[in-house]
Write a protein that binds this DNA or RNA. Sequence first.
DNA 1: GACAGGCTACCTACTAGTTGGTAGGTTCGA
DNA 2: TCGAACCTACCAACTAGTAGGTAGCCTGTC
Lengths: 192, 192
Amino acid sequence: MNTQSSRADDILHCARSLIVRGGYNSFSYADISKVVGIRTASIHHHFPSKSDLVRALVAQYRREAADGLAQLKLSVPDPLDQLRAYLGYWERCFADMADSFCICALLAGEIPVLPEDVAMEVRAHFRRLADWLTEVFERGAAQGRLRLSGTARADAEMFMATTHGAMLSARAYGDATAFGAITRPLLERIAA
Amino acid sequence: MNTQSSRADDILHCARSLIVRGGYNSFSYADISKVVGIRTASIHHHFPSKSDLVRALVAQYRREAADGLAQLKLSVPDPLDQLRAYLGYWERCFADMADSFCICALLAGEIPVLPEDVAMEVRAHFRRLADWLTEVFERGAAQGRLRLSGTARADAEMFMATTHGAMLSARAYGDATAFGAITRPLLERIAA
DNA sequence: GACAGGCTACCTACTAGTTGGTAGGTTCGA
DNA sequence: TCGAACCTACCAACTAGTAGGTAGCCTGTC
């Protein structure tokens, strides 16, 4: 069991680092095979089809994201600090890893050509993240820690859009610091 | 010459509508062949390699964008109205076409796996668009028509990021109206 | 304790279809 | 008669996926 799950995890981990570079059609079982040191047929044993693999990959990513956001809510009391910590997480990702990106943001762009079950996972991630942000904005407004320019939902959607757009800009410019440069003023603007 | 350019244009037009759905690796010469009614070998006659085709495609897109933005500056005097018109253009795109998207925003996500010359075109689009927006924000601030929350450049970068992120959200939600819902409050916030 | 049966993980070997790209020939208008 | 546009006929490499076999491990039974 240890062996199985570790192998499957190796495959998932490798697939994630491959997919994050260019999305669903940018990697193959052969690519994974070379890195993990396993035959492509053996990957099919763990994940019968590519859509199975990517769905599992996104599901795992979503669990990690959900855990992280829940943890953030527990460990950081202030709503504004929660947003700061969320952006800080991604800023550190871009600083530490060359090809960092939210895989759901990346896959969202490819939705028209994605297998339906993968697209559903991506859609669900956007909804959950928007829900979480909405809650933060609601509490922040209630506590007078940040000021809304519209509804909490609208502000949350805009915040999420700016974050994802900043990831695209960071990639386009080939500049890891661009993400922070774009998102930091965002916090200053909404701070009460 | 008429025939050549019309054929090449057919190919470019078709490739654009294919690439906009899922990026560089989501379409093939065979796909174009089926739609345009030409053999794949004949596509190679017009565009020797796929990167040539996509580079030409993005270059054409950039010319159109530059023309559109220049035209906008001439026909609409007010900076705030210029931003409104820019967002309105994309809002109409999403309303009219199912799989609408800025191909440069889409390709930006795939930059690590893109041919270098294509990546350069994408990068250039981001810079030019940010330059144009910066100028609009500068004039808007000077005329007291809109208020900056940081430098004109920072506000322009954030505006662009939010716009691109809103495109991703529209796709993720599968909701054409999402783009407008996210970006409209953006204008209200920066209006003086 | 031996041993059969079943299961998991992995392999080799293979498939059909697709990928971007080439070689060389034909057609046709200037 | 030259060249642009297009064709047929290839190609090697790669794509996701399948068939069938093997080695090793666990478990129940005699």
